[in-house]
């Protein structure tokens, strides 16, 4: 009985901890937006744009080769597998639907988010951790520069823009680059392929794509900023907060993506009258 209570206690503690953490990170998002929009006149727009553009450069532009390579591999594999398997069961006309579901709805947002966490999330968490130890955050505050508007907001906005653009780039490369590579192994007529895709893409796919990627952008960067700010005094804390930032970002992103996918399929099942 005692061990059962301990288990319940442990689970309760984890749940409360997760709720607290979630509230904290969304409070940080709210405060950074509030600071920027309520205090517009008192801060340099030019300085903010500088930080946002450098964030987009590091997170978005510099990740293009890696995302491109992953997209090409993923696209090729999915196209080859889907076309060969579907043709076996006579479902060749479903190729576009399958590609849209797999690449635009699922793989694009997920792989992009994982790459951004690995490349930029770690960089942001460790950069902020080091800034904290070096008194850089205190220095900004002492000059009347709010770290929420100067550090968090540009990373959030730059992060969202980068994640959405990278995911779009991923989908384009996966669908068209993958098609070109697949021609060497399993030729498909371009007009047939394009027609199949054009019929398959709907407004719902676009909305899902945007919701997943905007959420990933917000969550990855706010968690990494939040963890970076948790460093107190020592450089030895920096790797610890970076690890925590990566783990939490992946957990939140994957959970949200899965949750949204689940909701969509529940909706589909309801529409079909299965549930």
């Amino acid at each position: 009985m005692n061990s059962l209570w301990k288990l319940v206690d442990g689970i309760g503690e984890k749940v409360v901890g997760t709720i607290r953490y979630t509230v904290s990170i969304w409070t940080m998002v709210y405060l950074s937006l509030r600071t920027v929009f309520t205090n517009r006149k008192n801060q340099s727009f030019r300085e903010l744009v500088k930080v946002i553009s450098s964030q987009i450069y590091f997170t978005g532009f510099q990740a293009l080769p890696l995302i491109g390579m992953l997209a090409l591999i993923a696209g090729t594999l999915v196209i080859i597998q889907a076309s060969s398997q579907l043709s076996k069961v006579g479902g060749g006309e479903m190729l576009g639907n399958l590609l849209v579901v797999l690449i635009i709805r699922e793989l694009g947002p997920l792989i992009t988010a994982l790459v951004v966490v690995a490349r930029s999330g770690t960089a942001v968490a460790s950069e902020l951790g080091n800034m904290k130890v070096n008194s850089e955050i205190e220095a900004l505050e002492s000059m009347g520069i709010d770290p929420l508007s100067y550090i968090v907001f540009p990373r959030l906005l730059g992060g969202i823009i980068s994640v959405v653009c990278l995911a779009l780039y991923f989908c384009v490369v996966a669908l068209f680059g993958g098609f070109l590579v697949a021609q060497f192994l399993q030729p498909i007529a371009f007009s047939y392929y394009m027609e199949s895709l054009a019929f398959a893409i709907s407004l719902e796919d676009v909305m899902l794509f945007l919701v997943k990627n905007v959420f990933s952008g917000i969550v990855i960067f706010v968690i990494c900023c939040y963890q970076g700010f948790q460093v107190k005094q020592s450089f030895t804390e920096v790797p610890q907060v970076t690890t925590k930032a990566v783990v939490n970002s992946i957990m939140y992103t994957v959970s949200f993506n899965s949750f949204v996918t689940l909701l969509v399929y529940v909706k589909h099942l309801k529409r079909l009258g299965i549930i």
């Binding site: 070096n134 008194s135 850089e136 220095a139 002492s142 009347g144």
Partner: peptide, 23 residues
Amino acid sequence: TFEEFAPLRTSTSVCFENGGLLM
């Protein structure tokens, strides 16, 4: 709040022990 203190804060300046420079 940070915003309320900002006009007073910009009338002050701090030199940190380690410089506190943005790297």
